[in-house]
């Protein structure tokens, strides 16, 4: 039988727990957050932790607090990346980082962020029908955030409607930087499979080296969410979805011919399997489909309807 080679151990030295805790402690503010914030309702839960609404004891601007139990985090060093990225990179389409606390006795990490009262884009795509003008507006705002991150050598790697937050005024912001990767000069490609299966690009699922254009593919899948309410293959298991992406490439889109020519072309430019031919964020921001974007205020009725639903 063919000798199966063991996968070479990753050269990148894995950080020890102490190094990670030290890294987190250096990034965190001193003091106990429970003395500064009153935590109220739970907003949601994700792979890395839970998000709560909270109010500062002094002042009245509502905030969102993501609390993460450090004992069961698969890749703790990624938390350091998340905080560093959120602390360093500021943009109007990125959820604003406010503060972070490291509770060593409970080995918990609290990240305090701005609160967006419109909720996640997921609720809007699953509960309401978006028109092309609204899809263009949301897409443009997300592309602006991605264009900024990519210009800083950062890939988000987990673009999906769950990680796009909305304000009641129609503001659109990207969040959840726990899994983003920083591309340093010599290492401008990554290989670890990170993200959510249904939104993953073909080069990720087939374990090839990948770069920033994985975010462009996921944006294309998110446009399908805005059209159909969910990504392709969500009714299948994650493994089958990954198999379909690897073998089929560009997914079928229902009533694709009914979409405007501009939107059809825009989707084709994002869901291009060949990475070199796939568009980047610069090209997409200049695409004529962006001119169809309606005023962000037109998102408000969708958000209200989604909340009622």
């Amino acid at each position: 039988a063919e000798v199966i080679q063991r996968r070479p151990k990753s050269q990148k030295k894995n950080m020890s727990d102490d190094e990670i805790n030290e890294g987190l402690r250096s990034l965190a503010s001193p003091g106990d957050p429970t003395s500064k914030y009153t935590v109220s309702k739970k907003l949601g839960a994700g792979a890395s932790g839970c998000v709560y609404m909270a109010k500062p004891k002094e002042g009245d601007a509502v905030v969102a607090i993501k609390s993460m139990d450090l004992t069961n985090q698969p890749k703790k060093e990624l938390l350091i990346t998340e905080i560093e990225v959120m602390k360093t990179y500021r943009h109007q389409n990125i959820v604003n980082f406010l503060d972070c606390y490291f509770l060593s006795e409970k080995s918990e990490l609290w990240v305090v962020m701005e609160y967006l009262d419109g909720g996640a884009l997921t609720d809007v795509v699953t509960e309401t029908i978006m028109n092309e003008g609204q899809i263009a507006a949301v897409t443009r705002e997300c592309l602006q955030a991605l264009n900024y991150l990519h210009s800083k050598g950062i890939i988000h790697r987990d673009i999906k409607s769950d990680n796009v937050l909305l304000g009641m005024n129609g503001s659109v912001k990207l969040t959840d930087f726990g899994f983003c990767a920083q591309l340093s000069g010599d290492n401008s490609k990554r290989q670890t499979m990170v993200g959510t299966p249904y939104w993953m690009a073909p080069e990720v699922v087939s374990r090839k080296h990948y770069g920033k254009k994985v975010d462009v593919w996921s944006m294309g899948i998110m446009i399908i969410e805005m059209l159909e309410g969910e990504p392709p293959y969500l009714n299948e298991t994650p493994l089958k979805a990954i198999y379909r992406i690897a073998t089929k490439g560009k997914p079928e889109i229902k009533n694709f011919e009914k979409l405007s020519k501009l939107l059809q072309n825009f989707i084709d430019r994002t869901l291009e399997v060949e990475v070199d031919t796939r568009a980047d964020t610069d090209e997409l921001l200049l695409h004529d489909f962006m001119k169809c974007a309606k005023d962000l205020k037109t998102l408000r009725p969708l958000i209200v309807a989604a909340k009622q639903a």
């Binding site: 792979a47 890395s48 987990d158 726990g178 670890t192 499979m193 299966p197 249904y198 994650p238 990954i242």
Partner: peptide, 22 residues
């Protein structure tokens, strides 16, 4: 129905590295 709902929600969770089923 609750466990089905929980499974549906878990499908949208982020994955880091290859999971057990790969």
């Amino acid at each position: 129905a609750k466990s089905k709902h929980r499974y549906q929600r878990k499908k949208r969770y982020t994955m880091v590295g290859s999971p057990y089923w790969m």
